[in-house]
Amino acid sequence: MSDKELDLPVPDPGLEEHPPRFTDVDPAAADRSYRQIVAMLAAVPVLVIAFLVVYFAVPRDAELILFGSTFKMQTTLLGLTAGFATLLIGIAAIAWARSLMSDEEIVGERHGAASPPEARERVLADLEIGIDASAIRRRKLLGTGMAGALGMMLLPAVVSLADLGPWPTAEERAKTIEKTIWAEGVRLVTDVTNVPLKATDLVVGQLVNAQPENLEHLEDSAEYQIAKAKASIIVVRMDPNSIKIPESRRDWQVDGILCYSKICTHVGCPISLWEQQTHHLLCPCHQSTFDLGNSGVVVFGPAARSLPQLPITTDAQGYLVARGDFTVPVGPSFFERDSLKDFQEGDR
């Protein structure tokens, strides 16, 4: 609404009178202000010298105890000296502007954002002249051709990005995100310490974070983190009488020892918050909760699919080993994933 259309019940009194500041009328106040500003600026070199002294003289590992907290002395003192020096420059500049610079408000005019009509018409006319001069109107293919040619050049630019990563074709997926390094006979070893697990090592209610034994061989290769991000598992022992084991998974477990992927089916956090009494496993990232006593089905939270279970058995020496890879891809969903094979409540 422009000012003209606006009804004004009270007429515009015009700009307010300019009241002088204290420092305008009292020379002593102005001098005081002046002295304060100069003092602030004079403190800056002092702080800078203190900064330099701290930089060269304070040892890296010295500590400072302030208000019951331990600080790294060097970091804190460097920051305090540099911080206050910077702050003082700012405060001095603003104090100068507020108390000593002329504070007469001035008024400027505004003009609409649009150019004056003549200017707009001139540009339009110039555009017309330019277009005529370019001969594009008579030889139309020039324009189409140029636009087409420029458009086509996007193709090489985009296509040259096709090597950003391998293409997730069905074959590639089968080798990568749909596969882990678990295989028949691979022993379950404890995470970090790599000790092979025996069935007798686990008591009812216990949860162990584990890895495949062959992960250690990858330690120096780039594959290590990739393999670990898929192969991490948890091994739990529950009382076989207190859990549901479907017919099809009878031989996936050893006396109530079950093994599940540790990677959440939601967005891939490693899960291991174990509620021993309820057999629930909670993801600390987004709180998806899985029932390990019921083939890993989701009982709460944003995850949509059961935790994949790894079929295990024991080898001749009594060590727990995998019976093969996971039967479904582990980790978060992806478009080409065939999720009809995942375990669902009621499956046998």
Binding site: D12, A97, D103, V107, R110
Partner: peptide
């Protein structure tokens, strides 16, 4: 008072806002 859609009232960039805005950066 006195402020409309056609005018602007305040302080000049130089020196007031050079000092105020510059000071505020620090």
């Amino acid at each position: 008072p006195g402020r409309t859609n056609r005018n602007i009232q305040g302080y000049p960039f130089f020196p007031i806002y050079v000092a105020k805005a510059g000071g505020f950066f620090f």
